[in-house]
Amino acid sequence: MFTSVDDVSARLAETGYLASPAVATTVFLADRLGKPLLVEGPAGVGKTELAKAVAEVAGARLVRLQCYEGVDESRALYEWNHAKQLLRISAGRDETWDETRTDIFSEEFLLTRPLLTAIRGDDPKVLLIDETDKADVEVEGLLLEVLSDFQVTVPELGTIAATRRPFVVLTSNASRELSEALRRRCLFLHIGFPDEELERRIVRLKVPGLDEALARSVVRVVGALRAMDLRKLPSVAETIDWARTLLALGADTLDETVVQASLGVLLKHQDDVLKASAKLDLDTLGAL
């Protein structure tokens, strides 16, 4: 899919994703080695976006399994369409039960879910298993099975094996530790907060109207906030939101009033806002 690490960076950039060297290298290797990529990092650093960008670059379909507490096989893999099966049975054609049974457990009545969708068909696909840490531990067994053999057995239909393996990206916010077995199946990539230069480029790309000098200040302030002991540190997503807000406010430079008025875009907890205001020497009395 890619000829070199530079090729990865260049082509991701064309889709609007600016990859750090670590990201580009790991994507390159995941493709070369044919291994799933586990991307871990705080919210809002571009994990999901990366999978989308890879899909776009590869001209592949993005198949997304969004994990949540309680997601199970019938949501992740496949399910029989019971309603339709019932209808078919009660339509009661003139046939034996054996014939009926064979018929209702055929393709027509199968609801394919992302994991199965991703391994069927010959078109290129990117399988995004998003926020894997939100799923229950049991689901990991299922993922491991699918990601090891790239085949799925449906008892009534037999084994369905991938003719073309998807490029797999798993993301995690590390709210819980994924099992060692699953980690071992994957290449590991940690995405943290970008360095100043990269973040400035991201901001300039996503908020084109923003003045260069202002973008620089924005990124510097966010960097300072990240060095503070806050409950929730602002991520790239918040930096972009803040930049947009400033643009909308028509601010062409940062000053105390503007920062004070818009700090809530960056920080979600009131005590973080207070702490940051104090550390940034903002006139907190004015705000209260």
Partner: peptide, 20 residues
């Protein structure tokens, strides 16, 4: 490029952020 090599080895050998 030594830095790419570093990232590549980290990606293949490590399984968690704390190990870096």
């Amino acid at each position: 490029d030594r830095e790419l090599l570093r990232e590549g080895l980290a990606a293949t050998l490590l399984h968690g952020t704390g190990q870096r």
